[in-house]
């Protein structure tokens, strides 16, 4: 009986441990987030080898933000049009003046920018392990200062799939999980 309890405790700890780490978050202590009514999502920069990961994750973020009903989201096509007029190559390198100006043009209080640092699939034997890592931040368009930032990494190969060799999560499931967790730090 004692052994059974010990095994159960070990499994429980491993299961909880397998849930992974929480996102790393920064929230501006003095900023009133209720001020945010409308935000725009700038296409995420892609530093991974997975072509299209930036655009794909941007779409998932927009869906997640809209579903939260926390604020209005600018139609991505309009965001792209305004960004095109600035001939910006790297969205992560926007200057403070550009951010303020873009904010005025899009009539938004916040811009969400970010980077996909990893979006990969690794095969090990008959199973595939998918990993997604993103860094996101929100910049307030009146002053150009960062009011929220979060980074997180999710691996589709969870505790149970590692132990029992069951199928791990697909790339899109991993992406959605990662985005949900990152956005959760802003909305909750």
């Amino acid at each position: 009986m004692r052994y059974a309890k010990a095994i159960f405790c070990v499994l429980l700890i491993m299961a909880v441990g397998g849930c992974g780490v929480k996102p790393t978050v920064f929230l501006h202590p003095d900023y009133n987030f209720r001020f945010l009514e409308r935000v725009a999502v700038v296409p995420f920069e892609n530093l991974s080898t997975d072509q299209g990961a930036g655009a794909r994750i941007t779409q998932v973020i927009i869906t997640e933000l809209f579903s939260s009903r926390a604020f209005d989201i600018v139609e991505p096509g309009e965001t792209s049009r305004v960004l095109e007029s600035y001939s910006i190559i790297r969205t992560s390198a926007l200057t403070k003046e550009q951010i303020i100006s873009i904010g005025k043009q899009l009539n938004v209080q916040g811009l969400i920018l970010g980077t996909v640092t990893e979006s990969s699939s690794q095969r090990s034997g008959s199973s595939t392990s998918n990993t997604v890592t993103i860094m996101a931040r929100m910049i307030e368009t009146e002053t150009g200062s960062t009011i929220w930032s979060a980074s997180h990494s999710v691996n589709g190969r969870g505790f149970w799939s590692s132990i029992f060799g069951t199928d791990s999560k697909s790339q899109s499931e991993v992406t959605r999980k990662c985005v949900k967790r990152v956005i959760g730090t802003l909305i909750d």
């Binding site: 139609e75 096509g77 309009e78 049009r81």
Partner: peptide, 25 residues
């Protein structure tokens, strides 16, 4: 995706009430 210029064109020239778009992953 769609910008406001095209959206305006759809509303004014083609009399669109709504627009649907999206992405396939």
């Amino acid at each position: 995706e769609i910008d406001l210029d095209l959206m305006r064109g759809l509303a004014e020239k083609l009399k669109a009430d709504y627009v649907i778009t999206g992405s396939v992953f």
